[in-house]
Amino acid sequence: MDQSPPRNTSVTVADVAHKAGVSKATAARVLGGYGTVSDRVREAVTAAARALDYRPNELARSMTTGRSGTIGVVVGDIENPFFSLAVRGITDVARQAGFTVILINSGEDVAAEKAAIRTLLAKRVDGLIVSPAKESDVEHLREAFRSGLPLALLDRGSDELDVDTVIADDRHAAEAVTCRLLSLGHRNIAYLTACDTPDHRFRTAKDINTGSVRRRIEGFLGACRDAGLTGMEQWIHVGAVTPEHTQRIAKGMLQSALRPTALIASDSVIGLEVFKVCRELGLSVPHDLSLVSFHDADWTSVTTPPVTVVRQPVYGLGETVAKLLVERLNGERQDARKVVLKTEIVERASTGEPIQGER
Rank of each mutant, 00 (worst) to 15 (best):
P150G: 02
A144Y: 01
A112H: 12
S158W: 02
R88K: 13
I129R: 04
R95I: 01
L120I: 07
A133D: 01
D159N: 02
L151R: 00
A174L: 03
S136T: 06
E79W: 09
I117N: 04
V138P: 03
E139Q: 12
A86F: 08
S84G: 15
S147V: 03
P81T: 11
R156Q: 03
A116T: 07
S158A: 05
P150N: 05
E108W: 09
R118Q: 12
G69T: 14
R156L: 07
L103V: 12
K114L: 09
A122Q: 11
G98Y: 08
H140C: 01
D109L: 12
D169W: 01
G66T: 12
V110F: 07
R67I: 07
R67F: 10
L128R: 08
L153D: 03
R95E: 14
K134Q: 06
I117F: 07
D109C: 12
L149N: 01
S147N: 02
R88V: 08
N80Q: 11
V93C: 14
L151A: 01
S68P: 11
R146I: 02
I104W: 05
D164L: 04
L85F: 11
H140G: 00
D137S: 09
A174M: 03
A94S: 11
A168Q: 08
G157T: 02
G157Y: 03
R171V: 01
A97V: 06
R118E: 13
R156V: 03
G157I: 03
G69N: 13
T65R: 15
E143F: 04
I71H: 08
E135L: 02
K123S: 13
E108F: 08
F82D: 09
G76C: 13
A111Y: 10
S131T: 08
D164P: 01
D137G: 00
G72Y: 13
L149Q: 02
T165V: 00
L121K: 14
F145M: 06
S131A: 14
L141V: 01
F82E: 10
S131H: 06
V138D: 04
T119D: 13
S68T: 15
A111V: 13
D162I: 00
D155C: 04
F83L: 11
R124A: 10
P132Q: 04
P132C: 09
V110S: 13
I167S: 00
A122L: 08
T119F: 11
I78L: 14
E113K: 09
V110D: 08
L141P: 01
V87Y: 10
V87M: 14
S131D: 09
A112T: 09
S106C: 10
A174P: 03
A168E: 09
R67A: 14
R146M: 05
I78P: 08
R118S: 13
G76V: 04
A97E: 11
E139W: 05
R118P: 00
D109E: 14
V101E: 05
R124W: 02
S136A: 08
K123I: 06
T91S: 15
I90Y: 06
L121Q: 14
T100E: 10
T100P: 04
I90F: 08
L154T: 04
K114H: 11
V87C: 14
V87K: 14
D77A: 15
E139D: 12
I129K: 05
V74R: 14
R124Y: 06
D170W: 00
A122C: 03
